[in-house]
């Protein structure tokens, strides 16, 4: 280490001790200002009165003002003292937050949480999710992003995401899942569509229309299961259009080009109708890699609650297993 380094080091230590000292003096000042009695303040601070008086004198010398008026038998704040009080409180509180934050960093439980939700989750659900998480965990920095299921799987496995909210079926080694919730999508029709006169629409009623779905590359499970379900119930779309974002999907519906599936939305010109017999089931759950940390588990629980309460998704237990007809070419170890 060079002489210059040693000097710089010494200066740093000197500055930091000065700062620490200033914060400590401000803390004494705040307590005295609150008590307006040196004896009580000293008792609260767990120190004797003479050193406390000396410290305040030093702070007044440092700042070049008198903070307390001790001329009468009562202790009173001077105008300068009143000006200082809110600033001093702020600095003292911030310093305490810094200490706490660093102590948590040392313990390893600090935090930021990177979470992803599907692009079509819905603005109000997302808002509820974020608001409720912030209320419950003001100390955790939440970074929400929108991401399709495939991207979420990649990001979770790559360690770029702490918690995902994704569509099933999903299989990926090393991912854990929260309870699987089910949403039965309805159909979004253009206001002028003749089917809007019906209270519920059968999938077969949609025959011949075009359908908007999320792209297969983003939502492979939902895309395939939905198309299979539509075909099975008599709706073979004339064409499948792909939309990542809700606005594009709504645009295609408004234009009369296609119908879309999804939850109820209040968009002028678009009418939502439930599908008779709830033939389609969209399954969604939280997901994480490995064992979830405390924050991840907490946010996963909260997300599941919000999806139940604010998005009207139901916990139908394990999804009904569909019968797998054995075929030699797709059998195990074929």
């Amino acid at each position: 280490m060079s002489n210059t380094d040693i000097k710089l080091n010494a200066i740093n230590v000197w500055i930091s001790s000065l700062l620490m000292d200033l914060v400590r003096h401000l803390r004494y000042f705040v307590v005295i200002a609150e008590e307006l009695h040196f004896g009580n303040a000293a008792a609260r601070l767990g120190m004797a009165q003479p050193p406390l008086s000396q410290r305040v004198k030093r702070l007044e010398d440092e700042l070049g003002v008198r903070l307390f008026d001790r001329s009468s038998r009562q202790v009173r704040l001077t105008d300068a003292g009143r000006l200082l009080l809110p600033e001093a409180r702020e600095i003292v509180a911030r310093t305490e937050r810094i200490r706490e934050l660093m102590a948590r960093a040392v313990r390893g439980d600090t935090a930021s949480l990177r979470a992803a939700v599907p692009p079509d989750l819905g603005a109000s659900v997302l808002a509820a999710l974020i608001a409720r998480f912030r209320a419950g965990h003001p100390d955790v920095r939440l970074t929400p992003t929108e991401m399709g299921t495939s991207d979420q799987v990649d990001a979770l496995l790559g360690g770029e995401l702490d918690l995902g909210v994704l569509r099933h079926p999903v299989a990926a080694a090393g991912l854990g899942f929260g309870p699987i919730l089910v949403q039965h999508p309805g159909v979004l029709l253009r206001e002028e569509d003749e089917l809007t006169t019906l209270a519920t629409v059968h999938l077969a009623d949609l025959a011949g229309r075009e359908l908007v779905l999320p792209p297969r590359a983003l939502e492979p499970g939902l895309h395939d299961e939905t198309l299979a379900g539509c075909r099975r119930h008599g709706f073979v779309p004339a064409e499948v259009r792909h939309a990542v974002h809700g606005q594009f999907m709504i645009g295609l519906v408004l234009a009369g080009t296609a119908v879309a599936l999804g939850h109820r939305t209040d968009v002028p010109g678009v009418v939502w109708r439930p599908l008779a017999g709830a033939p389609l089931a969209w399954r969604i759950s939280t997901a994480w890699r490995g064992e979830p940390s405390g924050h991840v588990a907490g946010f996963a629980d909260l997300t599941t609650r919000v999806l139940r309460e604010d998005a009207g998704m139901s916990d139908e237990g394990a999804p009904p297993r569909t019968w797998v007809a054995p075929r030699p070419a797709t059998g195990f170890l074929s």
Binding site: H168, A171, A173, F177, A318, P319, R321, W323, V324, F332
Partner: peptide, 17 residues
Amino acid sequence: SQMTTDPGVLARLRVLD
């Protein structure tokens, strides 16, 4: 063969790791 479309079951299979 009827269980392996269940993501929860698949997540437990050693033979996929």
